[in-house]
Design a protein around this nucleic acid. Structure first.
Length: 319
DNA sequence: CGCCTTTGACCTGCGC
DNA sequence: GCGCAGGTCAAAGGCG
């Protein structure tokens, strides 16, 4: 599957001068703005610095266009790399996955291996059948560890907290720095119900430290907290655990690809994100457009580019 | 004042 | 048996 084909990564900044030339006067006249706009443009052009400013704007527009082109290339490379890694992972899982699941691991911390993490993340499996692995642990944990799930949550780049908002109320009871990951691992217990046996481990991904890996152990023996009960500072507004969130973040707008799938679709074929459907493509494009338009830097650059083109065009018309 | 976080100490399982 | 590493406990302090 070619994931680079999911989304048209080009921003399609159509800054055709002919369009500006043909549309702007018409619109201005249509809305009766010609008298107000034209003097403004004329005044702007007659200023001694107008030429320089126009040139600067054109340079800025070219710079933005070049940056856009580079970002597009980077995104394409990332998609291709992800595609290749996924293919390798699928091959590896098809060969060794079943064998590893059946063989009880002697190592206690088999879950900390990044390959295992990625297996679950890529497939969107919110629950893993690790009962066999956990059965070797001490008896008092057997009741708790019959249900293990993982969630991957992207956080803000500067956010150093280990808080995963999943709607439940948690009490932190420990924190450890593990050997395979310099980022500390936080241990939480469900504090919504005193008898709730659910525990949660949260640790930043070693590969991408903006991603929090939350491991849930056990099942809640109480109903999901209501929105009123979860409206506090640490309460979440999301309902239920987030199975998988994969994001493509840049320095500018963040495009989040939610690859979560429903728990009911556990077969391997349906675990692949149906991004080739028109609905998903439309959704992704809308999300990208929304992210871009919300970014003030992008809108400012876009406005500068458009105004630069307008000025350039009107300037060339005059000459 | 109660709840939560922090953090060092302690417990437990596993490999050598 | 010993050391290492993950997991848990509980006292202390912070905060609303």
């Amino acid at each position: 599957m070619d994931y680079s084909s999911w989304v048209d990564t080009s921003l399609d900044l159509n800054i055709n001068p002919l369009r500006v030339k043909s549309e702007v006067p018409v619109d201005a006249e249509r809305f009766g703005m010609a008298r107000e706009l034209k003097p403004a443009f004329m005044d702007f052009q007659t200023k001694p610095t107008a030429k320089e400013e126009t040139g600067a704007l054109v340079v800025e527009m070219n710079r933005v266009s070049e940056e856009n082109r580079k970002l597009t290339e980077m995104l394409t490379v990332m998609c291709e790399s992800y595609n290749a890694l996924r293919s390798q992972l699928m091959d590896y899982m098809s060969k060794n996955g079943e064998k590893e699941l059946l063989a009880p691991s002697k190592k206690r911390k088999s879950e900390s291996s990044n390959n295992n993490d990625n297996n679950i993340a890529m497939n969107g499996h919110s629950e893993s059948s690790s009962t066999d692995q956990e059965s070797s642990k001490k008896p008092r944990e057997e009741v708790i560890k019959d249900k293990i799930s993982k969630a991957y949550v992207r956080t803000e780049a500067g956010d150093k907290s280990l808080i995963v908002k999943d709607g439940y109320q948690w009490r932190k009871y420990g924190q450890k720095v593990t050997r395979d990951n310099p980022c500390p691992r936080a241990y939480f217990k469900c504090s919504f119900a005193p008898s709730c046996p659910v525990k949660k481990k949260v640790q930043r991904s070693i590969d991408d430290q903006s991603v929090l890996v939350a491991t849930y152990e056990g099942e809640h023996n109480h109903p999901y907290p209501s929105m009123e009960a979860t409206s506090g500072s640490n309460r979440s507004l999301t309902r239920g655990p987030v199975p998988c969130i994969a994001s493509l973040a840049s320095s500018g707008p963040t495009v989040t690809l939610d690859l979560a799938k429903s728990k009911s679709s556990n077969d391997d074929s349906s675990s692949k994100p149906r991004a080739d459907t028109p609905e998903v493509r439309k959704f992704l494009v809308e999300q990208m457009a929304s992210s871009l338009t919300k970014d003030p830097n992008f809108t400012a650059a876009l406005a500068a580019a458009i105004s630069g083109r307008m000025l350039q065009q009107s300037h060339s018309e005059k000459w």
